[in-house]
Write a protein that binds this DNA or RNA. Structure first.
Lengths: 146, 146
DNA sequence: ACCTTCCTACTACAGAAGTAGTAGATTCAA
DNA sequence: TTGAATCTACTACTTCTGTAGTAGGAAGGT
């Protein structure tokens, strides 16, 4: 049975299958398989097995049936999955998002431009948020989600 | 046999054992076990097994012997391990460090302060690097250059 | 030398993950 | 109505992880 979407833990290959499904919106096992990057396309039944496991985990569901084939659709969003991955990683080496960034910075994987860009994005987001709440407010400290 | 340090892939628990070892510098199986966070201390032999596997992977090596016990020391640095983890994560969902950050920003896991701090750190690092190359250069503690 | 304690080297085993084969049900074109 | 093509629902096998037990060797106190 499916757990709360947030608790779904995807493995490497399950992630790949999900990528294909996210890209397609909804698809049959065969379509998913064809959607996998050429080169890593396991046997049809292998993909099928993964899809079934994903179903058990509650990451996908059977949406409808076309011909004699089931059409699956994602239940978990890509964003939620990536977030989960990130959280796991952070928990793995007792890190916070900050220490993670620090790491990226230290190893030269982030440039000054990247940071400034992100900064700009964040400022935009906050401005938007604030604007949506109180068009002419000064410093509202409220967290509105979704 | 051990592969090049960079190729060593650590599992969750192996990471924990490494954390303990990194913290201790070098240690025997027992010391490593005692170094694990209270609460998650498996049986002595379990830790031993993990250490052996780490040895096979080339992540640790036997440094010397004290009494009848082997003293292990890390071969892979924490930094390299974290980096490896990060790279795997990124490869997993076809992301770049930037998209990763974007993700963190989007989900509100990074504040403006975090970003500015990282920016400062990066500037410092670059200044230092430049300074090392050209010892005579004056290193002002400010800089807003490209 | 003897016994207790601690280690090492193995071996074992269950559950997850990756990979795929098989049997039988369905479809669909002819 | 049939036969080929395609699916589904199982089952199976391997490798990796986490977890631990056991037998026998080495240290050290007395």
């Amino acid at each position: 049975m499916g757990k709360k979407a947030a608790e779904v833990k995807l493995t490497k290959f399950e992630l790949e299958v999900m990528e294909a499904l996210w890209a397609l919106g909804s698809a049959s096992v065969r379509e998913i398989r064809d959607g996998l990057p050429a080169g890593k396309r396991p046997a049809y039944t292998t993909v099928q097995t993964i899809v079934y496991r994903l179903e058990e985990k509650g990451a996908v569901r059977r949406a409808k049936k076309v011909g004699n084939a089931h059409v699956f659709e994602p239940v978990v969003t890509r964003k939620a999955a990536v977030r989960r991955l990130l959280d796991d990683l952070l928990g793995l080496f007792g890190g916070s998002p900050r220490t993670l960034m620090a790491q990226l910075v230290e190893t030269g994987q982030l440039t000054l431009e990247d940071l400034r860009e992100a900064e700009g994005a964040l400022e935009r987001i906050e401005a938007e948020k604030a604007g949506a709440e109180k068009p002419a407010a000064a410093k509202g400290r409220e967290g509105r989600r979704e």
